[in-house]
């Protein structure tokens, strides 16, 4: 017996044009801030930079103790060494970034009008290497992430300040694509990023409390105990996708860069505190 189920679906042509016309990143951010403040009136806005520790007092105490001997410190120190080691042509990372690459993490990611794409700090690090005749490095962990961790450290205390040039429809489209990624359900488990980190933020999932969308980008790269090393934000994106049984995208794919663009904009105004440690 042929058991088949037919579904009717609407394919919307020109969907992107319609959505971009209505995009208002600042309204989105304020709505999210308002949502969490109403839901958790006792949690100070800046506390969201601490992820799940904004909600979980016991885990927070353990985390504060762990910060006495932070597990990311070795990776960060290696990153400083890599950062200050000249390339074969005599130049270095400092030559590629404004202010010699010090204290600039808060300006990433940004929309590059020439490229027509979102540029993350990790992408810019590899662009710097390639411009200077060096091989690009893997994006998930290792040397590149160590350099990113050092650069994040030099930006601690700065305020997330992602700019979306709203006059450029390509930038708005990138933002909207990232927003769609965050709110669209995917994988066999049919979860969106927002299912856990917006609707269920602060609640428990098995033994863990779920962090909020606000502050999810402030503290990267992160030493996660489950990884046993420092890893990148895109490594975490991939892990989250796999957890809901969705095939992950490549680190620094357009999809993940747009997602980072949206998510970092949501954290505008929050202080950077990376690198960090998480369970």
């Amino acid at each position: 017996m042929n058991r088949s189920i037919s579904f009717l679906s609407l394919f919307v042509l020109g969907f992107g044009v319609g959505t971009v016309a209505h995009a208002d990143p600042e309204a989105d951010r304020l709505a999210l801030v308002n949502y969490y403040q109403q839901r958790y009136p006792n949690v100070d806005l800046q506390e969201y930079a601490n992820g799940l520790y904004a909600f979980d007092e016991v885990a927070r105490e353990q985390w504060i103790e762990m910060e006495d001997f932070p597990p990311y410190e070795i990776g960060m120190e290696e990153g400083e060494e890599y950062f200050n080691t000249p390339f074969a042509n005599g130049k270095g990372y400092a030559d590629c970034f404004e202010n010699g690459g010090i204290g600039i993490r808060q300006n990433f990611p940004y929309f590059d009008a020439t490229l027509g794409e979102v540029v993350t700090l990790e992408l810019a690090i590899n662009q710097c290497r390639e411009t200077n005749g060096e091989e690009p490095l893997p994006y998930l962990d290792g040397e590149l992430v160590a350099v990113s961790a050092y650069m994040a450290y030099t930006s601690r205390g700065s305020t997330t300040n992602v700019n979306i040039p709203t006059q450029d429809p390509r930038a708005l489209q990138a933002y909207e694509s990232g927003k769609e990624f965050y709110y669209a359900r995917r994988g066999q488990l049919n979860f969106a990023c927002a299912s856990c980190h917006a609707q269920s933020a602060g609640l428990s999932l098995r033994a863990d409390r779920l962090s909020a969308a606000l502050g999810q980008t402030t503290h990267w790269p992160v030493y996660r105990s489950s990884w046993g090393e420092i890893g990148s934000l895109h490594k975490r994106f991939r892990e989250c996708n796999v957890q809901v049984r969705a095939r992950p995208f490549e680190a620094q794919s357009l999809e993940y860069r747009n997602l980072e663009y949206f998510l970092t904009y949501m954290s505008n105004g929050l202080q950077l505190n990376g690198p960090a440690s998480r369970r």
Binding site: N2, R3, S4, F7, V12, G18
Partner: peptide
């Protein structure tokens, strides 16, 4: 849907057969 953009084309999705 109307708040986003009006649908311009309707087509049938893939059929899921368990045969």
């Amino acid at each position: 849907v109307a708040a986003v953009a009006p649908p311009q084309e309707v087509s049938e999705t893939p059929t899921v057969s368990t045969e």
